[in-house]
Design a protein around this nucleic acid. Structure first.
Lengths: 187, 187
DNA sequence: AACAAAATTTATCATAAGATAAATAATCAA
DNA sequence: TTGATTATTTATCTTATGATAAATTTTGTT
């Protein structure tokens, strides 16, 4: 739980009791490379913290698989459009490497919000931050070329190429694998 | 304040004291058509509820003005990437029509969170919902054609064409005004 | 109403990315 | 290690959208 607490403290310091309460509704999850952590059609009831490994969220658009995002060590991942609405998700979470995670039961977490306003505040801040990232992502997709987005991704996650197949990177960037290959070929 | 309270109640019911506390840090704002409500370079310290009128958030990319989003009556609008980070915003909010708003002082609002967990919860839910909308927007921009996005906008906001100039709609859709005109011309 | 300014459309040409197919390279499993 | 599978690149042709310019329509102001 150590890194998880460190992660939490970046957003909001928690009392020992609050940490204990979260620990009580959390459990370790280990997943093999290329396995789905959560599947399409399933309602998100777990927020995962990645201790080790790389995750991606993906879905299908017209039978084509699209990668929505990646998540690396020491961050959390969840399909928020299901987590916050309670609706089944059209998306899945897959681990790209053998991974170790901590799963936090979200219905129980949301119950803790009543007793621990500091926990509610923590997750408010975590998701506000993720919201800001997503607002910035809209701008990036809409007004930067595929090549600019590729270079920005490399800058932001220099090891993404070592850890993530190009076909996933391509759809994350909003282009086909062939186009990505072309962009990469230029230099 | 009536419609504002109705809006709040969609997310979280507030006690009378909480409503009063918010009222105490709110004030009416009237803005003429085409005037900026908040300007570029200014840190967002107000969350606005739109009683009457249409707002848009815009910014410049390479000297070209880009509309990030629109907001209509009975919703709130704020430049969240500044509101949540405290950094000056590269974006502005402009009212497209003569408008009446309620401005809620956000530093004071955030102070209320300590005394009124119900207010913190309210805004947590409001922004969680906005976050989900933005996640869906990413998908829409990335994997639907400009024409699909135009039709989706018309479906979602049927009166947008009556109230918003096409040049703003074009950059919101991520295309030039000329391209939008071409798309519209097809039918 | 009449003019000026702004918004929208139309036209032409250029370009980034898509679709498809095929070649090559890398990875995995027996 | 070898063959099979999967990932990546290369090539060709097509298409949606961009850039620019000009025409037309709408809006705003005196």
């Amino acid at each position: 739980m150590n890194n998880l607490i460190k992660y939490f403290n970046q957003f909001n310091h928690l009392s020992d009791e609050a940490v204990k309460a979260i620990a009580d509704i959390s459990k370790p999850v280990n997943i093999k490379k290329n396995q789905d952590l959560q599947s399409i059609g399933h309602t998100c009831r777990t927020i995962y913290f990645i201790k080790k490994g790389v995750a991606r969220i993906y879905y299908y658009k017209d039978d084509i698989e699209i990668t929505e995002c990646f998540a690396f060590e020491n961050t959390i991942i969840a399909r928020v459009e299901s987590l916050f609405t309670g609706k089944p998700s059209r998306k899945a979470i897959q681990m790209i490497e053998d991974s170790e995670l901590i799963g936090i039961n979200s219905p129980k977490l949301f119950e803790l919000y009543d007793k621990f306003p500091e926990i509610e505040r923590l997750f408010r801040k975590i998701f506000e931050s993720a919201y800001v990232d997503t607002v910035n992502r809209v701008e990036s997709i809409q007004f930067h070329s595929a090549e600019e987005r590729y270079n920005a991704l490399l800058k932001e996650s220099p090891n993404v190429l070592q850890r993530v197949p190009l076909k996933y990177i391509a759809s994350f960037l909003g282009i086909t694998q062939v186009s990505l290959s072309r962009i990469r070929g230029i230099r």
